[in-house]
Design a protein around this nucleic acid. Structure first.
Length: 278
DNA sequence: AATAGTGGTCGCTAATACGT
DNA sequence: ACGTATTAGCGACCACTATT
């Protein structure tokens, strides 16, 4: 019987055991892939293309050599080939696929380096750090970059603004990435800047956040949304929800980085209508 | 020191494409 | 036309930083 909150806290236990076992099929795949790479007389586009034509399931391993996770691979393919389907690409356009990976990510050089290197403990640890830490580092960095660009626009236009804050709408409040001239009840123009180079439920979260802004806002408050990144291409249902908001006029503007000029023009026009000193 | 908030990664399942 | 192989979509989780 729980007697107190501290009781409750102290009784919480790890759910999953700590385990570093690789799925056996993956394990075997890696083994035979490595063996095959070792046997290639010379690492060339043609050799690698031949390899994945025969073993399409090795493509993710090859991508790892070039420093790409499976997600990053799929994102890159989506842009370049219009599909994230690496398996069929390996079967049907093996050479194009390898050429792409080589030109964009230095695949052949990476494979040569990886199979030549005499791996030390330091190498292994460095790799582990790289793969685990770069996620978090890049997350915050890339997230901020889009926000920073938007902030730059606001500053350049001479607005008073507040970044990453809450604003008060009709009765309730909602989060926003920027508010002019400030958050809270003063907010007259609010907006969101959402950049994603990968997919995930966070894109749905971002849309929900915008939907909330649209729902909460006063009729006189403007709402602008700036989106960019490959992630939206692979999450089109979420992007469509944003588009629907825009089409229904529930948000006043929807832009990508390449339409920042429109954003500037629209936000200036809005500020004139609102008689905000700018 | 805790927490709110950022985007990237992962594994499962539904949908679709493909081969017979 | 059907059954399998492959892809797309989804939601939960991760690693980190900034803020308080």
């Amino acid at each position: 019987m729980l007697q107190s909150f501290d009781d409750l806290l102290s009784q919480l236990r790890p759910i999953a055991p700590h385990s570093r076992v690789l799925d056996t099929s993956l394990e075997e795949g890696v083994e035979s892939f490595a063996e095959a790479i070792r046997k290639i007389p010379e690492v060339t586009i043609d050799q690698l293309a031949e390899l994945i034509r025969k073993h399409p399931n090795w493509v993710p391993f090859l991508a790892l050599c070039a420093g790409l996770t499976l997600e990053q691979l799929k994102n890159a393919l989506q842009i370049h080939f219009g599909t994230a389907g690496w398996y069929r690409l390996a079967q049907r356009q093996a050479r194009e696929l390898i050429t792409f990976l080589d030109q964009e990510y230095g695949l052949t050089a990476a494979v040569v380096a990886d199979r030549t290197r005499v791996w030390t403990l330091a190498h292994v640890l460095k790799e582990r750090l790289l793969w685990s830490r770069q996620r978090g580092v890049r997350s915050t960095a890339s997230g901020r970059s889009l926000e920073d660009i938007v902030e730059g626009v606001l500053r350049h236009l001479g607005f008073q603004y507040e970044m990453r804050t809450m604003f008060r709408g009709r009765t309730e409040t909602a989060p926003c990435d920027f508010a002019i001239p400030a958050g809270g009840s003063q907010a007259q123009i609010v907006g969101a800047a959402k950049g994603f180079d990968s997919t995930g439920s966070k894109l749905s979260d971002a849309v929900r956040e915008v939907e909330r802004m649209a729902q909460v806002r006063r009729p006189t408050q403007y709402v602008y949304v700036i989106v960019d990144g490959v992630g939206w291409r692979r999450r089109q249902s979420d992007l469509k929800r944003l588009w629907a908001l825009f089409e229904r006029g529930e948000i006043d503007g929807l832009y990508t980085m390449s339409h920042l000029d429109d954003f500037k023009a629209d936000i200036e026009a809005a500020s004139r209508r609102l008689s905000i000193i700018s």
